[in-house]
Computed example of a mutant assay.
Amino acid sequence: MNKALRNPLVFFLFILPALILFTMFFIYPIFSSIYYSFTSWNGVSETVKSAGISNFEKALGDERFWISVKNNGFFILFSCFVQVPLIIFFSLLISNVKKLKGLYKTAVFMPSIMSTAVIGILWGFIYEPNIGLLNKVLGLVGIDPLYWLSDERFAMLSILITNAWQWTGFYIVMVLAAILSIPGELDEAAAIDGATGFQRATRITLPLIVPIISVVIMLSIAGAMKAADIVIVMTKGGPAGSTDVMATYMIKYAITNFKYGYGNAIAVLIFVFTLVVTAVYQLLIARRTERIEY
C-alpha cells in the first residue's frame, strides 16, 4: 500500500476526475468565450465570422455598458460600507445572547437558503406602490406613495437593500463562528480588568476576527461582480436600463438579441474587471491581514 502511494501515477489518477470536470466547466468555457468574443456570431448559424476587436470597442464606447459597470460598483460599495458593518454589528449582538442563540442564527440564515426568485417576488410586494408594506408605513407619517422599482431614483437602492437582506445572514453565521471560536478567557480577563463591553468588542474581538472579515469582503466583492438574478427578477434592468448590471447587459445581447459574439465580449470584460478588482483588494488590503493565532 505504501509503495503504491509513493507512485505519482496514483495521485494523478485520484485528481483526474476533478481535473476533467475543472477543464470541462471552467477552462474550456473561458477559452471558448474569448474565442467567440472576437467574432460576430449570432449563436445559431454554422458560419462564424471574425470581427476583430470591434466587439470590445463597441462595448467600451457604449454608455449603457458603463451604466451597468457603475451599478456593479454600487453593489460593491453597498456591500463593503453598509452590509459589512451591519454584519459585524449583528454578529457581535448575537454572540452576547445567552438564550435562544441557535434560534437567532437560524432566523438570520433563513433568507440565504431561499430562492432569489422568491426573495425578489416577496420584496416586490413590499415595494408595491399601492398596497406595499413600505408605502403603507410611510403613509402613516404623511409621505406620499413612492414607485420604488419604477423610479430611477429608487430602483437601484431597492435592489441593493433586497440583495443585502438575502445574503447578510449567511455572512453573519461566518463571522459569528469566528467570534465564538475566540477563547472565553480573553474576554473574561478584560472584564476583570474593568474593560466595558464596547472596549472588549473593539479592542479584543474585532482585531481577532479581521481575517474572516477580509474573507467576507472578498466574497461580497465577488458576489457583486456576478449579480444578475435579483436584478432580472425585480426590474429586468429597468426602468430604461438604469438598474442593469454587467451580467444582465450581457444576457440581453447574447440571448435576447442573438448577438452571441458581443455577449461573449461582455463576459470577457466582466472576467477582466473582476480580476482587476480582486487583485487590487488583495494587494492593498488582504495581504496586510495577518493570520491571528491565540
Rank of each mutant, 00 (worst) to 15 (best):
A51F: 05
P29L: 14
I53Y: 07
K58I: 04
L86N: 09
L19I: 11
K98E: 05
S33H: 02
V97R: 11
I94R: 00
F65D: 03
Y36H: 12
V97K: 13
I30W: 08
F11N: 15
V44E: 14
F74S: 07
I27H: 09
L5S: 14
S33G: 02
I53W: 04
L21Q: 12
S79T: 06
L19Y: 14
N71Q: 03
P85R: 00
S33F: 08
F14M: 15
N42P: 09
V69T: 06
V48P: 05
E46C: 02
S40R: 02
F89H: 15
L77A: 07
P85H: 06
F65Y: 05
L19V: 11
C80M: 02
N42C: 04
T23P: 00
R6G: 07
L77I: 05
K49V: 06
G43M: 04
I20A: 06
N55Q: 04
F65T: 06
G73S: 06
A4P: 10
P8K: 15
I87N: 03
Y28V: 09
L60F: 00
W41C: 05
V69C: 04
N7Q: 13
D62Q: 00
P85K: 06
Q83D: 11
R6L: 09
I15M: 05
S79E: 07
F25D: 01
F14W: 12
A51T: 05
N42L: 08
L93S: 10
C80R: 04
I87Y: 07
F11E: 13
I53V: 03
I88R: 03
L13A: 13
I87R: 00
P29E: 08
S32D: 02
C80G: 11
N42H: 01
K70S: 15
F75I: 07
W66D: 06
T47I: 06
P17Y: 08
F11Q: 14
E46S: 11
L93Q: 07
S40D: 03
L9N: 09
T47F: 05
S37W: 02
N96F: 10
L93I: 02
N7T: 05
N96I: 08
F22S: 12
F81A: 07
S79H: 09
T23Y: 11
I88N: 01
S37L: 01
N72K: 03
I30H: 13
F14S: 12
A18M: 15
L9I: 09
S79R: 03
S91H: 09
